[in-house]
């Protein structure tokens, strides 16, 4: 990865292939979410809290695989999902700098999405922004503006004791299994006890969506079983 600040003169001529940019998600099992998208994303993926390895702080995330570096929604060329989290949609662009007000847009120059044959341009021939880059601006603005509310939400959840460490211990059809640690789910019993203390109705809806989203773990297991079966067939054919 090589992040550089986006500039009209340096990068205006580049073309982007968003589908290829998304290919980095093939190795990602946890995708960070911003508060405003949790309800939507939770309709499709299990949503947990996890801890950032560098800072130890909780963040909400969508679970896409059952072991690190596994994404069961990645088909080899696309992400098989109706709702793609903003942190994947923005690729290959990033927000640089710690202060959202001063945020600079950065480009990963080494991203496979930087592609001379890509369908999206950054600038129109007349030098104005394309619809594509305007959309990217909107996504990055939403992510930057969502940092503080997301932080506040996480602090309220942890402060009220609504999260509980959840060890995913799943079995597959071929007899193997996987154990995934470091995920924290909404504890419905604790939520029931503390519901009067959750004063913001939006919080209630987000918490309910997160709690219900655990049902999607079953979908991940089904995807994993299909992948194992496909691998076995491929290996059988190769032999």
């Amino acid at each position: 990865m090589k992040l550089v600040q986006l500039s009209r003169t340096e990068h205006g001529h580049l073309r982007i292939n968003p589908a290829l940019a998304l290919s980095v998600a093939a190795n990602v099992h946890l995708v960070p979410l911003t508060l405003s998208e949790i309800r939507t994303v939770a309709s499709q993926f299990p949503v947990f809290l996890a801890k950032d390895g560098e800072t130890g702080q909780f963040y909400p995330c969508a679970l896409m695989g059952l072991e690190p570096h596994e994404n069961l929604y990645w088909t080899g060329s696309a992400l098989d999902a109706d709702h793609i989290p903003l942190n994947l949609l923005r690729l290959p662009f990033f927000i640089g700098g710690a202060d959202p007000a001063q945020a600079a847009i950065c480009l990963d120059e080494h991203s496979p999405g930087v592609d001379a044959n890509g369908p999206c341009a950054i600038l129109e021939p007349d030098g104005s922004d394309t619809g594509y880059i305007t959309t990217i601006h909107g996504i990055l603005d939403r992510l930057a503006a969502g940092k503080a509310p997301t932080r506040g939400f996480v602090d309220r959840v942890v402060g009220l004791g609504l999260a509980r460490e959840t060890k995913l211990d799943v079995r597959f059809d071929n007899g193997t299994g996987a154990v995934l640690n470091g995920l924290y789910a909404i504890d419905e019993t604790a939520l029931g006890r503390q519901v009067a203390a959750v004063t913001d109705f939006d919080d209630v809806m987000v918490l309910a969506a997160m709690a219900l989203s655990l049902a999607h773990v079953g979908g991940l297991v089904r995807r994993k079983n299909r992948r194992i079966e496909a691998d076995a067939q491929w290996l059988g054919a190769a032999a």
């Binding site: 801890k51 800072t55 130890g56 702080q57 942890v158 004791g161 460490e165």
Partner: peptide, 11 residues
């Protein structure tokens, strides 16, 4: 040093 900036979580 990290703890000067970030907190351990309660869980």
């Amino acid at each position: 040093d990290k703890l000067a900036q970030y907190r351990f979580q309660p869980i």
